Amino acid sequence: LQAFIKTLTGKTFTVEMEPSDTIENLKAKIQDKEGIPPDQQRLIFAGKQLEDGRTLSDYNIQKESTLHLVL
């Protein structure tokens, strides 16, 4: 599935991932794409901060969901 990552500066980019991917995997993909170390990334979806060990499906993240990236 493709999801949108929106930063506080208003920049939006897309990442490809599977519902079974962990938040940790997602942070690694963001690092590959944007060069931001995972330990500096905080991802917010539906008002909740996402925990590394959980999966996208745990948070009911669907295709074309928008996640907010806070540094």
Rank of each mutant, 00 (worst) to 15 (best):
A3R: 02
A3I: 15
A3M: 15
A3K: 02
F4D: 03
F4G: 03
F4V: 14
F4N: 10
I5L: 04
I5T: 01
K6A: 09
K6I: 15
T7G: 05
L8S: 15
L8C: 14
L8R: 12
T9G: 13
G10S: 03
G10W: 03
G10C: 05
G10T: 03
T12V: 13
T12D: 05
T12F: 09
F13V: 04
T14M: 13
V15Q: 01
V15G: 01
V15P: 00
E16M: 13
M17V: 15
E18D: 12
P19I: 12
P19M: 13
P19H: 09
P19A: 10
S20M: 09
S20K: 08
S20T: 11
D21C: 04
D21F: 05
D21P: 02
T22A: 03
I23W: 02
I23R: 01
E24V: 06
E24R: 14
E24G: 14
E24W: 14
K27C: 02
K27T: 02
A28M: 14
A28P: 00
A28V: 11
K29D: 01
K29S: 04
I30T: 00
I30A: 01
Q31S: 12
Q31L: 10
Q31N: 09
Q31R: 13
Q31P: 00
D32H: 10
D32E: 15
K33E: 07
E34P: 00
E34Q: 10
E34H: 10
E34N: 09
G35H: 05
G35V: 01
I36Y: 15
P37C: 06
P38M: 15
P38G: 08
P38E: 09
D39C: 10
D39T: 10
Q41K: 00
Q41C: 05
Q41I: 12
R42D: 06
R42Y: 12
L43Q: 00
L43W: 03
L43H: 00
L43V: 05
L43S: 00
I44A: 04
I44E: 09
A46L: 11
A46F: 09
A46D: 14
A46C: 09
K48Q: 14
Q49T: 14
Q49F: 13
L50S: 01
E51Q: 10
E51C: 06
D52W: 03
D52L: 04
D52A: 06
R54I: 05
R54F: 13
L56I: 12
L56Y: 04
D58E: 11
Y59S: 02
Y59I: 06
N60L: 09
N60W: 05
N60Q: 08
N60K: 07
I61W: 07
I61F: 08
I61T: 06
Q62H: 12
Q62R: 09
Q62P: 11
K63I: 08
K63A: 15
K63N: 15
E64G: 15
S65R: 06
T66G: 05
T66S: 06
H68L: 15
H68D: 07
L69H: 00
V70A: 06
L71P: 07
L71T: 10
L71Y: 11
